[in-house]
């Protein structure tokens, strides 16, 4: 009985492997053909050229763009991860302070208390595609100045891009930075 038990368990393993690791993923892959972008990840195109994945954040450092969140992996989506810095780590707190100072240099019209926390803290994935609505709104004045377009127009653009909580009730308000910047480029 003992020996045949091992052999049976082995055969059961093989058939489980066929079912759960071959048939199941193939079925989901088949269904994915009907999903957006056929399950390959939705991309965003500008003038027929892919400029990014809709859900993957990218690095914006140029002042003509809305800035995204700091990233521990520098927005390279070949990997992912957060800073894993503890809340009391002195080096980390210095880094946050440096981000605050840099942000104030770029936005001399702001005070510390106006800076939303998401703009000075790194996201968990390092690829966060979103910023909070406040984080977009505080940058409006700078964008208007740099691009020499009316502030009101930029503000309207941000407001149009704010995504409400799920069904208006659950979760956070956010703005997809890539989509916002693409639309910003089309303003004259």
């Amino acid at each position: 009985m003992k020996f045949s038990g091992i052999f049976s368990a082995f055969r059961l393993t093989i058939i489980c492997l066929v079912f759960f690791s071959v048939l199941y993923p193939l079925a989901i892959t088949g269904i994915a053909q009907f999903a957006p972008a056929k399950g390959k990840g939705e991309t965003v195109e500008v003038n027929g050229k892919i400029v990014g994945f809709q859900k993957i954040g990218q690095s914006f450092t140029d002042s003509i763009y809305f800035l995204g969140r700091p990233s521990a992996v520098n927005y390279n989506a070949a990997g992912s991860g957060g800073s894993n810095k503890g809340p009391s780590n002195p080096d980390y707190l210095k880094e946050v302070q440096a981000r605050i100072d840099a942000f104030l240099v770029r936005h001399p019209y702001l005070q510390k208390k106006d800076i939303p926390a998401d703009l000075v803290t790194a996201s968990g994935s390092g690829l966060d595609p979103d910023i909070s609505a406040e984080a977009a709104l505080v940058q409006v004045k700078r964008i208007a100045q740099v691009r020499k377009i009316p502030e009101e127009k930029v503000k309207q653009l941000v407001e149009k891009n704010i995504q409400k909580p799920l069904w208006g009730m659950f979760g956070t308000e956010k703005v997809n930075v890539l989509e916002l910047n693409i639309e910003l480029n089309s303003i004259r």
């Binding site: 605050i100 510390k112 208390k113 998401d118 790194a122 996201s123 968990g124 966060d128 910023i131 909070s132």
Partner: peptide, 16 residues
């Protein structure tokens, strides 16, 4: 440091 953390502690978290 003078930052108003209305969204809470955001280090290591996603906005969505």
């Amino acid at each position: 440091m003078g930052i108003d953390q209305q969204m809470g502690s955001m280090e290591g978290k996603e906005v969505r």
